[in-house]
Design a protein around this nucleic acid. Sequence first.
DNA 1: CAGCTTTTCGAAAACGTTTTCGATCAACGG
DNA 2: CCGTTGATCGAAAACGTTTTCGAAAAGCTG
Lengths: 337, 337
Amino acid sequence: MPVTIKDISKHLGLSVSTVSKALNGYPDVAAKTRSAVLAATEQLGYQPSATARNLRRQRTDKIGVVHPVKSFESETFVGFFRGLVYAAQDFGYNLNLYTAPESDSAALQRICRGREVDGMILIGTGIAGVQEASMALLEREGIPFVVLGNPVEDSNVSFVAPDNRGGALAVMQHLIELGHQRIGYIARPDDPENNAQRFEGYRQALAEAGIDFDDTLITEAPYTPYSGMGAMRVLLELPKPPSAIFAFNDHVAIDASRTVLQRDLQIPEDLAVAGFDNIPSSLVASPALTTVHQPQIEMGKQALEVLLALIGGRDDVQRLTYQTELIVRASTVTKIL
Amino acid sequence: MPVTIKDISKHLGLSVSTVSKALNGYPDVAAKTRSAVLAATEQLGYQPSATARNLRRQRTDKIGVVHPVKSFESETFVGFFRGLVYAAQDFGYNLNLYTAPESDSAALQRICRGREVDGMILIGTGIAGVQEASMALLEREGIPFVVLGNPVEDSNVSFVAPDNRGGALAVMQHLIELGHQRIGYIARPDDPENNAQRFEGYRQALAEAGIDFDDTLITEAPYTPYSGMGAMRVLLELPKPPSAIFAFNDHVAIDASRTVLQRDLQIPEDLAVAGFDNIPSSLVASPALTTVHQPQIEMGKQALEVLLALIGGRDDVQRLTYQTELIVRASTVTKIL
DNA sequence: CAGCTTTTCGAAAACGTTTTCGATCAACGG
DNA sequence: CCGTTGATCGAAAACGTTTTCGAAAAGCTG
């Protein structure tokens, strides 16, 4: 039995409408009554019911985050959440988490049709095909949304994503500068879009350096625990093994390192290792991992900004790519101070 | 302009009330009309407005998660979020994230009075005193809530927490069995409740083994980056340095290890290190960290269960403590297979 | 067929707001 | 003193549901 606007109006002998107008800054209310209303509000501890207000205004001032269940298993995704939380805090919004069911999209449909949120942010692109179905659904229901990360295919949606190609290019140039000629790549087939872009950077660096592409140096690590170890084993057993490897992300790179160390090889002396994402573990890994940092906080903020614009009525799709930063650590160079 | 219940009623020539009753399983509606309503619902793609329904029912079927901004910086907290996300998915609930402002609680008050959620889960106890103010507020506003983790002081609230003392005891017994007699403890003053309980386990183990307590072996690492390194330095410069240390949590332990390795000491030969929480980094740290695992998924689920009971009308406080599990890795024993 | 029960439905109130529109009243210009 | 204007307020509709209650229709009993 919380205090409602009716309580305030009774308490002051005013009508409900005047109280509402006083609180919402309408001009047709006397200064004296407005201050009286404000005082009573404070005194009785009144706060408008969000539900009632939402119903009347036909909007909820809430934004939803759609993500696969496994998001929180991955330090990469957690990084994006971190960015979103900071962004939401800055914008005075609260986040509603909607865990996208792997199989059917009935739940998401319920959210949309139930008009629980004004807009949505999609995160965890590509994993398990969840995003693809969700995007189609949101499009159909006319809910504004932006993808945090790379959307599948060349769908015509707004997104905020890292410069995968540029980041991969930087890592590769770093390795090539160190003198490496045979550089392996461990791919992530489950995340086709990100993988394709990083692989593109890999190939571009080779081409620019005049190094022939050798497809025996490409191997795959699917989205399962420790898959990077198996991939690394394949590379090490090659007739002419690589002297360095660039892994799709830090998780894979750390797994790969494990295999390397198990064989009593030295990193980076016998084999240099580099990853992508700059997850917390990459710093404590042994040796500390050379990787690519993406500005997840800024990206989260930007994604929210774009979404708010979309909700506000803008209808042009925005495709924003964020610069990444190479972080050199002990897994590629020995002398590091 | 989404399709409302009125559209359905018009389309079928029925009244709004019968449609609603058909959908909500009321008995006083003919089987034939019910199936007609269901069919029309499916055909027109109708989904009740969550807002309108909430207003009428006076509940939102949503639960909020109050957490400090920094939660997502800490792998420990992320673990709890992980548990909550799984639990929410299991119970068919969605989580609303409410980032508790560090200083004032106006925002939280707005949530409560606005009746946006049916209940709340508080996470990140003790950090920066946020939880204390929040708990008082929620209590005052009459919103059901449960604390995930240890609540401050001996407040009379429901919580689901790990067995800190038992976990610490197990780590210490492990170290003592290995022959260590001088064991340091790095405390976390910012998290008084958890710290006190783990410290209690530390002292109990010493007492049971008949080892005298030496307070020069106790040092502190506040909640700032790399604070563990400084704490470890203090311990190493002692006239009689410890042969093993037990750190408040894995973050601190990993920091401490860094200092140890910088001084060209071997872990665990020269100094054994153990932590608490079993964060992802503890596995990739070098050497892999001996630590205490808490069943965060189960705990998250349990917290939600308790909260749902509270919302359902139960009013007895529940204080649940979860068993932890010692995880032995290379930072305490050399031969590990 | 009269009277009763059971089945099936619809009218209307209610949830707590916001917002439009008209009403009242004082002030003001002429 | 009258018509106009501006300031201030309240009545009422609306947002989209759920739920209570009474009414109508149908079925049943004797």
